[in-house]
Amino acid sequence: MRTIETPKAVARNVGRRVAELRGEQGLTQEEFSAEVGVSLRYLQQVEAGRENLTIESLVKLARHLRVRVVALFEPAQIKIGRRGRPPRIGGKGTS
């Protein structure tokens, strides 16, 4: 059976791969974004799978990660869950 890939699913996987490869190099998002020459916010959007990357961006990211572009399309091993504050427990006014 063939899996149907959506653009969102591919962008999400590429973002996870960028995060995974960056982490393997021991770089923070701040360090890597400065090295690549992009804003921290942009890198966060990429890793969250919310950026539609151009070929130029893919090549630039791969170069700084020291991998071939095709490596960004390999299945990610990490699963990135919801980030941020955990949901509030209880109703309004609960301490």
Score class of each variant (00 low, 15 high):
A62M: 05
G26E: 02
R50S: 05
E35M: 09
Q44M: 02
L53Y: 06
I4L: 15
E56Q: 09
S95M: 02
R22I: 06
S95I: 00
S95N: 06
S33Y: 01
H64F: 15
E51K: 15
E5S: 05
V70Y: 14
E35T: 05
V10M: 10
L58Y: 04
G91K: 09
G93M: 03
Q45W: 09
E35L: 14
R2V: 08
G90E: 03
S95Q: 07
R85V: 00
I89T: 11
R68K: 11
R17D: 03
G84I: 00
T6Q: 02
R68T: 02
V59K: 06
R12W: 00
V10W: 03
R12Y: 02
A19Y: 14
N13P: 14
G81I: 07
L58P: 09
A34Y: 02
G15Y: 05
F73G: 13
R41T: 13
Q29I: 13
L40N: 11
K60Y: 00
P75V: 04
V14H: 12
E51Q: 15
A9W: 00
R50Y: 01
E31H: 12
V70M: 13
A62P: 07
I78S: 14
E35K: 15
Q44W: 00
G84A: 06
L27I: 01
A71K: 12
P86L: 00
E74P: 08
A76Q: 12
L21Y: 08
K60M: 11
V67I: 13
L21Q: 10
G26S: 04
K8G: 02
H64C: 01
L43E: 01
R63H: 09
G81Y: 01
E74W: 08
L40D: 03
V70H: 15
N52G: 04
A62S: 10
V10T: 15
H64I: 03
K79M: 02
L27E: 04
E30W: 04
V18N: 03
V38A: 04
P7S: 11
V69I: 12
A48Y: 04
A9N: 05
A71C: 10
R85Y: 00
G84K: 06
G26I: 05
H64T: 03
R16N: 15
Q29D: 07
V67G: 06
A34W: 04
E30Q: 14
F32P: 05
R2Y: 01
V36N: 08
S33I: 02
V59N: 03
P75A: 03
I89G: 13
L61A: 08
G23N: 14
T6H: 05
F32S: 01
R16S: 15
F73T: 14
V59W: 03
S39D: 12
S39M: 06
F32C: 08
V69W: 01
E35H: 02
G49L: 05
R68L: 02
S39A: 08
E35V: 00
V14G: 08
V36G: 08
E30S: 12
V69E: 11
R16F: 13
S57M: 14
E5D: 09
A62F: 04
G93F: 07
F73Q: 10
R17K: 15
I55E: 11
R88I: 01
A9D: 06
V14I: 15
I4Q: 12
K79Q: 09
L58C: 12
T54H: 08
G37I: 00
I78H: 11
L40T: 14
L72S: 07
G26W: 03
R82G: 06
R83M: 10
L65F: 11
P87R: 12
G81L: 06
F73V: 14
A19D: 09
A11F: 08
E56D: 10
L58V: 11
S95E: 10
